[in-house]
Design a protein around this nucleic acid. Structure first.
Lengths: 226, 226, 226, 226
DNA sequence: TATGAATGAGGCTTCATTCAT
DNA sequence: TATGAATGAAGCCTCATTCAT
């Protein structure tokens, strides 16, 4: 953002300068809709080409406007990435909070529910999740660090549940909870790399199977070890 | 070779056959010492910054030579990526073949061994594996397709073993083998994203735990399904 | 547009349709004013330094813009060459067609008229013709082949007229029409190599003399052959 | 020639440093032969790709040696061009001198002989002549100017003969001798652009026809002038 | 808001040339 | 002589961003 003072960022609550009709402010909804179109176009393009390889021109093309015009909606390319990742994070975070709020679940049942919902979300939001996991490290240092910090909440959430299950004797306590958590994340997240929507496999079944898989992994079994 | 102590010259006969000949693309086996240094430097840089974001300059800097000089060893930046991915694939493929050749193993035991060795390899070759899984889609179309085709062998290997285990009654047959295989891959591959070498967690333990995790996932358990 | 007075804006509707769209190569007719300036600058530079030796920087300098800005108007350096050659070919082709359409001319008279007009055109468009004859072989293979194919029309046109004149007994039939045609072309084309505009020799006289010269050559004379 | 003192140029009379057998100096002939091979390779490459587009690597490839090794025979790429052009000029000049020395020829007969021999030479030395006429302007300023000056001798030779023929009443004096000379050169030189050796058309016939053509052009004819 | 021309930095690649062995 | 690694300059092109209209 060369030679450009940090402007009052208009992202979510857009400052609008009335021009033609000074008396009739246009519905904020219109602006918000356009903003969302921009994000969606960016998600599609970043997913297809990768953030680093995608150009601002690509996104403008996707929207059917000119590159210069796009800068009415964004501050910079990285700003777009940030907003996308932020939006995704919010939604993923919401899932965690919903699951955390469910009453009367055992740690394992809560883990199953968490995995199920995350996989379901991922399989319905492939582009966004692909960017979330593939391109987050291209944020500016500050923002990247912050996002990493926010993600830790998920790690802690899962690791804690595993630990609790082990303490309750419901899971094999000989397995390192952190490693197990990462295995769980791997199975859960990897979906964005191989799932193709539109086929026979429905998001719900996929979510069930993945949850089943990781749950068995978490539980472990001394008997099975050879 | 600016600022780089002359290293013990010995290893092999330094006969180098020209690569940059207009007509001969990438022939002649026998990658020599310097070639390997170049590959290593590239692996490091691509891992750190991502292929798309890394510049040829970065790699030259890493080697302590000028950008232009690097082109003695490579045809293009993408050529470097390809060679890296190719090398990695060979090694990963070798693991599969070793495991396939082990005598007298049940499908599940073979899966455990495959996972164990892959995780072990990954945790000892983080940079290369990170590039292998993160940047392969930035190859030229032809090369990307070929690599994708080669990777399918692994999918088939794992899926077949899962199917066999299910047929033998050693694994829960109600789970879709393809989904299960991808869950396995997820846990196994994801290691490149979170494992930090040099800590307490040794590659061997990690490999054991991951293998244990995915094996339990593959086996599944009707009783456990809620 | 550094150091370049704002020129009288009028001419045409400055509607410019993007050219640099990733998908639309070089569509949309209606080269506008600035496009023509670019072509003219390129013609000047290519003529002066030769296509291979000229740099994009040279052309940008000629226009008073930055190198990068030039790419608003062109796709590549070779694209510029192509457009220049294409434009030239169109104009040269138009001459052929005009001459072919003239009614009631004998083959020889038609040849004279063709030569006269081509020489006249050449002497008034030295830069373009120099590029046309000097640098066409630096086009990409496809484009070069197409241009070569188009040029053949001229060869056939001239050779046919020569043959007709010979059949009518108006030209010495003992001379190979193809060789004669090439001699004619040589005299006619070579003008771009030696004619200096601004001197005493006017394009019209030059054209007359050249036409006279080649016509006598075509006619030949048995008596004169030693 | 960066940071390299002008060395005693060894082109024609090669300074040799005896190395192995101090007593038996190798035949100078061997060195000369190698020099000629280098020139020939350069001629081939420059003809095929054009001087500006050809690389030193191309020439080394053609010779089957490495680029670095080539610099044992040349001072620079431009040096190669110069030697080639110089050699060509010598040979072309020799033709002029031979023709000038022929006794008892009328101006027209001398012109015919000059043209005939030049065309014959051109058709047998296409590569060298193509470079001579196509790439001479890429010499360094000094050398280019000198070559241009040398070429003027030919212009004067031909123009003088034309003038003499006109004064004798053997050629149409209403045509500007300089223009006529250039027409003659055009037909004569153009051969390098269209003649394909190995076909039916033999150099001798070609030379005869071209000479016939230009002679008729030089003679002109009042009757024919419309 | 939209346009599109212009910027300027940076990226990939080529290449003539040098030089130690 | 031959090699081949290295240099350093230059060339083509892309692209995020700005800005006047």
């Amino acid at each position: 953002m060369r030679g450009m003072g940090k402007q009052p960022v208009a992202e979510r609550t857009p400052t609008r300068t009335t021009r033609k009709t000074r008396t009739v402010p246009r519905a904020v909804k219109g602006t918000r809709r356009r903003d969302q179109e921009v994000l969606d176009a960016a998600a599609k393009v970043f997913h297809t080409r990768g953030y680093a390889d995608a150009s601002v021109q690509d996104i403008a093309d996707e929207l059917g406007i000119l590159k210069g015009s796009l800068y009415h909606y964004i501050d910079s390319k990285e700003d777009l990435l940030f907003r996308l990742l932020d939006e995704t994070h919010e939604e993923v975070q919401a899932i965690l909070e919903e699951v955390a709020a469910l009453p009367d679940l055992s740690p394992l049942e809560r883990l199953r529910e968490y995995t199920r919902r995350q996989v379901d979300y991922t399989s319905r939001n492939l582009a966004k999740m692909a960017i979330y996991y593939h391109d987050a490290d291209q944020l500016s240092d500050d923002r990247r660090r912050e996002l990493t910090r926010k993600r830790r909440v998920h790690e802690k959430f899962v690791t804690d549940l595993i630990t609790q299950a082990q303490e309750r004797g419901e899971a094999n306590a000989s397995l390192d909870p952190k490693v197990v958590a990462n295995c769980l994340f791997g199975s859960m997240i990897w979906v964005y790399r191989w799932y193709k929507p539109g086929g026979k496999l429905r998001p719900t079944e996929l979510a069930d199977t993945c949850a089943e898989f990781v749950l068995r992994g978490v539980i472990g079994d001394t008997a099975s070890s050879r």
